[in-house]
Amino acid sequence: MNSDRIFGLVGLVTALAYIASATQIQTSFLADPVGPKAFPIIIGTVAAISCLVLMFRPDPDPEWPDARTWGGLALAVVVLVAYAYALKPLGFLLPTMVASGILSYQISPNARASALAGVSLSIGLFVLFKFALGLSLVGLPRFLQG
């Protein structure tokens, strides 16, 4: 019950903010009868109404994970975000090794298997992408390339 209410409230606020920013869209001199504002405002309105319906007629709650699993999920997001930032400056091999190792450990907590998964995935995928498919990937960071 509460999950849907909270989601509805968040959605409602987002929809109203969306409508508010849609009214700020600059129109140009090449005006058509509808203009660039109307459609976003319609969408925002439909979304706001649907969110209100959801708040007043919520479904039963889903089964949410426990606190420890939430921690694990948050860690996974942090790892993925860090991976996104690291991919360019540090090359493919090292960040992939670390990131896939951590993800693997989170799915099945076995340190040796995860280390193996990390190393083999990073090398295997690098060979596949670089040499079999010809994508331009940088393997190692510049300072290690000598």
Partner: peptide, 26 residues
């Protein structure tokens, strides 16, 4: 209501960017 919200999320995201006919960022 949930599927309407889902469609609106998608449509709302599609609006982001430069507007095709006026050339203004939205």
């Amino acid at each position: 209501a949930k599927s309407a919200i889902a469609a609106c999320i998608g449509l709302a995201i599609a609006m982001i960017g430069v507007d095709n006919s006026s050339g203004m960022p939205r």
